[in-house]
Amino acid sequence: MMLHLQTCRKGNMKNFDIPDTDYMYPGHLACPGCGASLGMRFALKALGENTMIVLPACCWSIIAGPFPYSAVKVPLFHTAFETAASVASGLRAALDMKGQKEVTVMAWAGDGGTFDIGLQALSGAAERNEDFIYVCYDNEAYMNTGIQRSSSTPEGAWTTTTPEGYLKTRPKKNIVEILAAHRIPYVATASVAFPDDFIRKLQKARQIKGTRFIHLFSPCPPGWKMSSDDTIAIARLAVHTKVFPLYEIEDGEKYTINIKPKGLPVQEYFKLQGRFRYLNEADYTRIQHDIDHRWAMLEAKAAVGNKQYLRHTA
């Protein structure tokens, strides 16, 4: 097992096809090891300068910097917590009316703004198939306000509102299935540990018209009680333990699994994070069973829609 962890910490050196131009400035306000800042950097590399960001309340409201600064080189509109999808709808409408159809509107929201308070607006926009990309960078709790549980927080996780003795007992909400159920053209999961996969998905999404949703796994060192140099290792482990599989759903039906997991035991993922320190062997067994079951369901859906793995990777 140690060997797997070492591999996940080191990764395999190889050449990723990642665009050179950066649209993020140095000096942003993210914590060390923040998955969300890395994610934005990759997202803007993928989408380029013809992009506008709609940003509801989330960690990025701080990361983007206070007035009069900005951490990004594209227009950015800060808005209220629950309005990413509805403000993006209006901005898209304005750009279409002004003939600026080539500009990509990207809503960039956390899990609280997506799974919880912004879900109604997102569902409305997705049902209308509004033409924008929505990225939910998921750090599995309200991190900006100081680690309170959201409906994205996984079972068994400690947060300040699910303390010891009152840990979260319900599973993480399946936002991907909710979006897929709207039959929008493109839904994908992605991870900051797989930048080439994330960038490819954004570039693919950019070519599609309609609502495109990307669920980005984004570790949070202070919130997950993990070492800030383990962000990538933990994100890799999430994929290889099948905790967070990487896959795409086209038109709500065609499932493609993008990375074949190594199938590591879930403890490998849990043990690097203090937020899971209250789990015991019985919990591991139960959660492992659940993960295996959900993986089998995903494989079955992929087999129906599009039975192939795009590639095998470490």
């Binding site: 709609v54 304005a94 607006a121």
Partner: peptide, 18 residues
């Protein structure tokens, strides 16, 4: 839109877009 809240939010987005 699916609510008045989103109606005003999309007016805000549209107006910000000019």
């Amino acid at each position: 839109v699916e609510s008045e809240h989103s109606a005003m939010a999309s007016c805000i987005g549209a107006s910000a877009g000019g």
